[in-house]
Amino acid sequence: MNIVVLIKQVPGTDNVKMDPETGVMIRSGKDTIINPLDENALAEAVRIKNSRDDVKLTAISMGPESAMKALKEAVAMGADAGVLLSGRAFAGSDTIATAKALAAAIKKLGPVDLVICGERATDGETGQTGAMIANNLDIPVQTYVSALEVKEDGVVVKRTVEGGFERVEVPFPVLVTVNKDINEPGFPTLNGKLRAKQVTIPVWGPEELGVDKSELGLGGSPTRVVKVFSPKLSRDTIMKKADGSTKPVDELIKFLTEKEAL
């Protein structure tokens, strides 16, 4: 059974700061982490791997050279191998171009049974890439998965949707995107860390993927960022201070009654 987990390296949440003048993100290169939902994806893949003895688990990431660290971490957590897609050709990719590159990488690895990724990444928050990759691979996709049961020749997933859950049965091969209810993310072990040190993670560019450069990066991206700005929040706020009396609450009730909000 071949499982591929897709992981993205993202800035640690505390370290995302905006330049108040330019509105541009200040990235500190050092404090990066694996996208939290991708850690859930990885933990789920490791769980499946540990429950049977025929699993080959490969982690793939697209990003700068430093994303090698995230892949090593994935190996330390239980992946057998890793592949990094990196190079200038990928820079500026939107979700369409990213999905092309990642789908090509999965194809190159050979027949896959199960692809798992986080439902979205904390930096871009688009949540589109998973489904797009499935489309490019021409395999079914199941999104917002909060429980995954591996059967003889497929999976039964529980999806978290508006107002409840759906259960869907899908044969292999399939791509699932998971949310955080699926499991607790794991930790790398010392032996995993030692193994990760030995593992060589290949870096693939457009040539290795056999994808024309024009389909990748900014050139392969249908969307363009026009401008970036800081959100503005403000309302005319009536402020009251609690003073032990019911007065502020009475005034609130009066306000809400006038606005017909109750």
């Binding site: 404090d31 971490e73 930790f187 072990t189 010392l190 860390k193």
Partner: peptide, 24 residues
């Protein structure tokens, strides 16, 4: 950490988990 981790494994540790980034 390898030295300390191995020392623990030799002395009865059930497992040694390693966290070297913010989230872990």
């Amino acid at each position: 950490y390898e030295t300390i981790g191995k020392l623990c494994l030799e002395n009865g540790a059930l497992e040694v988990f390693v966290a070297d980034n913010m989230s872990t």
